[in-house]
Simulated scan of single mutants.
Amino acid sequence: MSVAPDTMRAMVLTGHGGLDKYEFRTDWPTPSPAPNQVLIRVHACGLNNTDVNTRSGWYSKAVSEATTGGAYQTISDEDPTWGGAPISFPRIQGADICGTVVACGATADPSLIGKRVIADCWLRDWSDPDAIDIPGYFGSECNGGFADYAVIDHRNVAAIDSSLSDAELATLSCSYTTAENLLNRAGVGAADTVLITGASGGVGGALVQLANRRGARTIAMASAAKHGDVARLGPFAIIDRAPEDLKAVLKEATGHETVTVVADIVGGPYWPKLIDVLARGGRYATSGAIAGPMVALDLRTLYLRDLSFFGSTATSSRVFPDLVGYIERGEVKPLLAQTFPLAKLPLAQETFIAKKHFGNIAVTMGEG
Rank of each mutant, 00 (worst) to 15 (best):
residue 100 T to A: 06
residue 344 K to F: 12
residue 164 L to Q: 11
residue 45 C to T: 00
residue 69 G to Y: 04
residue 292 G to Y: 06
residue 53 N to Y: 14
residue 86 P to M: 09
residue 19 L to V: 01
residue 191 A to V: 12
residue 225 A to N: 14
residue 171 T to L: 13
residue 27 D to Y: 11
residue 47 L to Q: 01
residue 342 L to A: 08
residue 335 L to H: 10
residue 305 R to F: 11
residue 35 P to T: 01
residue 367 E to L: 13
residue 364 T to A: 12
residue 37 Q to A: 13
residue 193 T to S: 15
residue 301 T to Y: 05
residue 155 R to G: 04
residue 302 L to W: 13
residue 283 R to K: 13
residue 232 R to G: 05
residue 329 R to L: 06
residue 123 L to S: 07
residue 117 V to P: 05
residue 308 S to T: 14
residue 263 A to Y: 10
residue 175 S to N: 15
residue 74 T to C: 09
residue 284 Y to S: 08
residue 106 A to I: 05
residue 266 V to F: 02
residue 241 R to N: 12
residue 281 G to W: 01
residue 301 T to N: 14
residue 300 R to Y: 02
residue 155 R to P: 11
residue 30 T to F: 02
residue 14 T to R: 04
residue 95 A to D: 03
residue 257 E to W: 08
residue 70 G to E: 14
residue 311 G to P: 03
residue 118 I to H: 03
residue 289 A to F: 14
residue 278 L to R: 05
residue 220 A to F: 11
residue 188 V to M: 06
residue 33 P to L: 00
residue 165 S to M: 04
residue 88 S to V: 03
residue 287 S to W: 10
residue 177 T to G: 06
residue 316 S to H: 12
residue 289 A to L: 06
residue 5 P to R: 01
residue 262 V to N: 04
residue 189 G to I: 10
residue 19 L to T: 03
residue 234 G to Q: 01
residue 315 T to H: 09
residue 136 G to H: 00
